[in-house]
């Protein structure tokens, strides 16, 4: 390392290997995963898009921005500092919204409660704590009660 020749001998590996590492990590790998994703997991790879009557209405994992009293609502305050698009609420938060939805739609409390209970997610075996996806719940409501949700079925 002391003589100039050996320092200079590093020039080629430094530059060429620098570029090769870009090709491997920065192009080959993400393109490979894009190929695998589009071929085998197209639904997930394209953002978990959800359809209603053939129309794409959003992503399953993104808060759809429900405000009407006939729907369950997510709780994304603008000051939360987190993702701000969390589509999930706890079952308790869902239960607390049920009386309001029931009086706005005429669907009974017990029906709404069982829809919430049947669609709990977030636990596998002993891990995690349960939550419900607001978009999922509301799409179930629209599909099961088209006469109540005529404004949203077109």
């Amino acid at each position: 390392m002391s003589d100039k020749k050996s320092w200079a001998s590093h020039l080629r590996p430094l530059i060429v290997l620098g570029i090769i590492s870009l090709l491997i990590g920065g192009l080959f790998f993400p393109f490979l995963i894009t190929g695998v994703g589009q071929a085998f997991f197209p639904h997930q790879a394209n953002g978990d898009l959800v359809q209603l009557n053939g129309r794409t209405v959003g992503s399953y994992y993104i808060d759809n921005g429900f405000t009407s009293p006939v729907f369950f609502h997510a709780r994304n305050e603008s000051t939360c500092g987190c993702s701000g698009v969390d589509p999930d609420i706890t079952p308790q938060q869902a239960y607390s919204q049920i009386p309001g939805i029931s009086s706005a739609t005429g669907i009974t409390n017990s029906t709404l409660t069982s829809i919430v209970n049947d669609n709990e997610e977030g636990t596998f075996w002993i891990f995690g704590s349960p939550y419900v996806n607001v978009l999922n719940l509301n799409l179930i409501l629209i599909r099961e009660y088209p006469s109540v949700y005529t404004n949203y079925t077109k």
Binding site: T34, L49, L135
Partner: peptide
């Protein structure tokens, strides 16, 4: 591949603009 299967996206097609349920 695990993350893909579990719902994480991997696309180069640009952002998708949608009209929400409401």
């Amino acid at each position: 591949v695990f993350m893909l299967a579990a719902g994480v996206p991997q696309t180069l097609s640009g952002y998708t603009t949608v009209t929400t349920v409401q």
